[in-house]
Each structure stands twice: as C-alpha cells, then as structure tokens.
C-alpha cells in the first residue's frame, strides 16, 4: 500500500486481501427538482481503497449525485448510507474567491477545522504545492488551485475523498499529473475516492470502477468492462501508459493523438444509446460549451 508508484491494479489486489470496508452505499436514489427528473433509481457502492468515477454528459446529474453522497442534498427518495463517523474530504467543483478577499494558500488551509501547521506542510508537500504556501489564492493557475483544494481535502485525514471535476481548468499535462497524484494518494492513505470527471481519455487507468451516468446509470463496472482497448493505450507511449488511458467505451469510436477517428464503432442492435458520440472528449479538441 505504501508503494506510491505501483499501478492501481496491483493495489486493488492488495486491498482486496484485507476486507475492504464499505464507505458509502446509495440505493435507488431519485431526485427531482420541480417536474424535472435529475436522477432516477441510482445505485452506488464504494469501498475503502476504491476509486469510483462518475462520467456522463452535462446535466447528467453527476454533481447532484455527489452532493447527495455528501449529504448536502437530500434525495427525493432512496437511501443513502455512509459508514459511521465517516471522515470526508471534499474538493468542490468551483472555488470562486472574490478578488477583494486577500487570502494566502496557507491561510486558506488554516481554515480547515483542527488543521495544525504540521498537517498543512504535509498536505502541501503531498500535492506538490509547498512552494505556493505564501501565494495569493487568486494568483494561482488552474492546476495549482486544484492542488491546493486537494490539500485542503486531505487535511481532515479523510477516509473518503470526494472530488468534483478535479481537473477543471487544468491543461492536459496537468490533468494526467493530477490523476496520477489522486491514485498515489489513494495508494498511500487507502481512502476511497468518488470523483466526477470529464477527462474520459485520462481517467480510465486511474479508476477501479466507472459509472456512466445520464440521469440513470447507463452502465457501470471495471474500466475494462465498460470498454478498454489496449491497442489504444500504446498510442500514448510506455511512459504515460500507467497514468493515462483512453476511454474506449465500446459505445463509441476512438481517437488517436491528433483527434482522428481510428476505429469507428459500429452501431448495432446491442447499442443502448443515441449515436452521437458527445461523451467523448478529446484532449486536442476544443471543449464544447455543451459539455
């Protein structure tokens, strides 16, 4: 468990030898706002040491589901069970600090309850942001801010990390590094991780389980089950293989590094989706606002 560089698969195997403790269990969760159905019959199960990633288009209800898991939002029906006294580290989707609030990274981290100076140093070192300690929060780049938020989430020594789009506003290289970091943190602390992601290309090798959400659970399982093509992984070269993988959801076609379609998915009778491959985001392709 304390081999930070070991690939996630090895670690899952190690974790499986001890009995993994269930951290979070959602059963038949429904949520509607007015007459809009946001979530229907969603089940989710997360154990200690497991990384579970929610993927899906915008408006799929990912953030709502996360908020229900956190207890910030009460579901319309269904049950939410968190293990007793669960310590949760939360990384919210957005942190918009008003420009008029002068706040250094250190002071921001001191706001976490019961955080000591030593905790803050450890957390900053762990996310590789120790040099930012005295920087103004508003002066940080996207990637730096996400690392600082991750450090804040780690301060409470969480058993469960909940990360809502941890790589928002981060460039491609930074995204891969962040997922790598999240995997290492899981390995070191053995915490469970529930995250929402848009980076389908990167997230697959960093996750143990995927839930494809579009108001309801479209499909779920191991990344391989949901769809994984080793031939595609090779395109990234050996160095990046461990941390970077490609979302090869068998519903959709694949891209090479330049964004060209390399293997068109043939829609057949088994498809349970609309043909538009809008889920697939390529790093080189501009993000469409509809996502």
């Amino acid at each position: 468990m304390n081999q930070p560089t070991s690939p996630p698969k090895t670690d899952t195997a190690t974790a499986a030898t001890c009995i993994p403790q269930a951290l979070l269990h959602l059963h038949a969760v429904d949520f509607h706002a007015g007459d809009r159905h946001i979530l229907q019959q969603v089940n989710l199960h997360l154990t200690q040491g497991q990384i579970l990633t929610l993927i899906g288009p915008n408006g799929a209800g990912k953030t709502t589901l996360v908020k229900i898991a956190l207890g910030l939002v009460v579901p319309s029906s269904g049950t939410v069970n968190r293990s007793a006294d669960l310590r949760i580290g939360y990384m919210p989707q957005r942190l918009q600090v008003d420009a008029t609030l002068p706040l250094s990274v250190q002071r921001f981290l001191q706001l976490a309850p019961r955080s000591t100076a030593a905790d803050i140093t450890t957390a900053l070192q762990e996310v590789g942001a120790d040099h930012l300690r005295h920087s103004r929060l508003q002066s940080l780049s996207g990637g730096e801010l996400q690392r600082v938020l991750l450090a804040r989430a780690l301060l409470g020594k969480p058993q469960l990390l909940v990360l809502d789009e941890p790589t928002q506003g981060v460039d491609l290289k930074g995204q891969a590094e962040l997922y790598d970091l999240i995997t290492r943190i899981r390995d070191r602390h053995g915490c469970g991780v529930l995250m929402v992601s848009h980076d389908l290309h990167l997230v697959m090798s960093a996750t143990d389980e995927v839930i494809c959400l579009n108001q309801h659970v479209c499909c779920h399982g191991h990344p391989e089950q949901v769809g994984n093509d080793p031939a595609y992984l090779e395109l990234f070269g050996k160095a990046g293989v461990e941390a970077m993988a490609v979302y090869t959801h068998h519903h959709y076609h694949e891209h090479d590094l330049h964004g060209n379609v390399v293997d068109e998915h043939v829609h057949d009778a088994n498809c349970q989706h609309s043909p538009a491959p809008s889920l697939l985001l390529h790093p080189n392709a501009p993000r469409r606002s509809s996502h």
Partner: peptide, 14 residues
Amino acid sequence: LSFTLQSELAQVEG
C-alpha cells in the same frame, strides 16, 4: 470566513 469562501466545503467540514 470558510463559509464566505465556499459554503458547501464549509458544510462538509462540519
């Protein structure tokens, strides 16, 4: 201060 910065984070932190 915590609540002013991000009220949901503050809520999760208790």
